[in-house]
Design a protein around this nucleic acid. Structure first.
Length: 422
RNA sequence: GGAUGGGUGGCUGAGUGGUCGAAAGCACCUCGCUGCUAAUGAGGCAGGGGAGAAAUCCUCUCGUGGGUUCAAAUCCCACCCCAUCCGCCA
């Protein structure tokens, strides 16, 4: 959510930002509703002032005088009821409109409509070369019996999967290496709920839009698609000590996504599944743009470093305006090389939000001048499994269908090859 | 699922119809005392919105939403959340 004062004073910038994001929003209507809101508020304030003032005279009065005042007060009250009703209606409309206003993308965000327009900003390594035709991870894992998709969908339905044997070892090895790599960055480790109440989804910007992407329980909670939701909710409605900034969390959680709009995409394998596991970086920092930018680069780099530990070719893209979410100011995706598809696939997403999320979540701190401020928030994937297994398996496949374990993972897997007798 | 007790400022916590946005304490800030720290003395100190050059003034907020009343933190209703006990259970 943006500050209404900011929207009023910078309507053109807000509109241009929405255009860049390809998000429809009616700022003029919001401003008109806001004018109405302010007008009614002021009128009501004046009447309330009178009511309170005269009401306070009441205890000092006696009999006849009191009767007269009581009479007058009852009339005043009746006159206010109608305006209060109108204000209530206006406020509902106002709040709905406010929730539709997107955050403003940074100047450096490239123009464009979809992920096809994202801009490569970094490239690491080159496409893995093979002396044979590389297979995709579905064929490889099924041949090695380290994943089972047929039984996955038998049991769990569409997009269901089992990891099995060394597939499980590999996933655990990734978690352990991730834990080692990221905890050296002095982040606070968190294991967070996936079953989360509505408020945190509203606060992070996943609701009210996007409800169809979430699983919902019969008790009204939702299953989070990322640990960001619970981690940001952690300090909801709190006033934090500025000395603690930047607060750096590394959160682990199961993640659930309905993939409602993804019919027909990635129908098989580990790329797009309904449930997975993820380490997520979440940051709260002082409300300074430069600090957000610095930490944004930092969390993104942390994940790049991890991928480099695995020696997998990747590139980093700056997401274009049309590929940004409602609250995001800027986003980088890290995409790993997937030989079986002969293209890069997203593995990580690093975004910053300025105070868009903290404003909604009512997370505040007092700055050096004694003013209450909303801190800035950022988050980035640290590492998702099993999706990252796709790139590991496909890039490290051998001619005989076995998988070489990346050196960095060998201590955790406990062997050099998966499959075969090497 | 059943029962009981609760949700008040940054924190602890008092407040059951009338200038209460709220006692007291802690924390914090300013000033004084002091070789430094500690201790101590005086004062200040909730947030949002609005008016104003400023001083300041007005208004809203005591879990959320309704209601009663001239007047609600305080009374009534619904809901949410928390704690404890019982039951059930991984």
């Amino acid at each position: 959510m943006l500050d209404i004062k900011f929207i009023r004073e910078n309507a053109d910038i807000v509109k241009a930002g929405a255009v860049k994001k390809h998000i429809e929003v009616d700022i003029d209507k919001l401003l008109a509703v806001d004018d109405e809101r302010k007008r009614i508020r002021q009128e009501l304030d004046a009447k309330r002032a009178e009511q309170i003032r005269r009401s306070n005279e009441m205890p000092r009065m006696k009999d006849l005088e009191r009767e007269k005042l009581l009479d007058a007060m009852q009339q005043l009250k009746a006159g206010m009821a109608e305006e209060e009703e109108r204000l209530k209606k206006v406020m509902i409309e106002w709040q709905q409109l406010m929730l539709t206003v997107p955050n403003i993308p940074d100047m450096s965000v490239p123009d464009g409509e979809s992920d096809a327009d994202n801009l490569e900003v970094k490239k690491y390594g080159t496409a893995t070369e093979f002396s044979f035709t590389p297979k995709n991870h579905v064929d490889l894992t099924e041949a090695l019996d380290i994943a089972d998709f047929q039984r996955g969908s038998k049991v769990a339905g569409f997009r269901g999967y089992f990891l099995k044997g060394d597939g499980v070892l590999l996933a655990n090895a990734v978690w352990q290496l991730a834990l080692k790599h990221f905890s050296a960055k002095e982040m606070t480790l968190m294991s967070v709920p996936s079953l989360v109440r509505r408020e945190s989804f509203m606060g992070t910007g996943y609701l009210p839009q996007g409800e169809e992407d979430l699983y919902k329980t019969q008790d009204g909670e939702f299953l989070a698609g990322t640990a960001e939701v619970a981690t940001m909710g952690y300090h909801m409605n709190e006033t934090l000590d500025a000395d603690t900034f930047p607060i750096k969390f590394l959160s682990f959680s199961p993640c659930f996504r309905r993939e409602a709009g993804a019919h027909g995409k990635d129908v098989c394998g580990l790329i797009r599944v309904h449930e997975f596991f993820k380490w997520e970086q979440v940051i709260l920092c002082k409300a300074e743009h430069d600090e957000s930018v610095r930490l944004h680069e930092w969390i993104n780099r942390n994940t790049e470093e991890f991928v480099e530990l695995l020696k997998i070719p990747y590139h980093t893209v700056a997401n274009c305006g049309g590929d940004l979410g409602l609250g995001q100011v800027k986003k980088y995706d890290i995409e790993l090389w997937v030989p079986g598809e002969n293209k890069y696939r997203e593995i990580s997403s690093a975004s910053y939000f300025h105070d868009f999320q903290t404003r909604r979540l009512n997370i505040r701190y007092r700055d050096n001048e004694g003013n209450m401020r909303f801190p800035h928030s950022l988050n980035s994937t640290a590492i998702p499994t099993p999706r990252i297994l796709v790139s590991i398996i496909e890039n490290y496949q051998q001619a005989d269908g076995t998988i070489k374990v990346p050196d960095a993972l060998v201590p955790y897997v406990g062997k050099n090859f998966i499959g075969g007798a090497k």
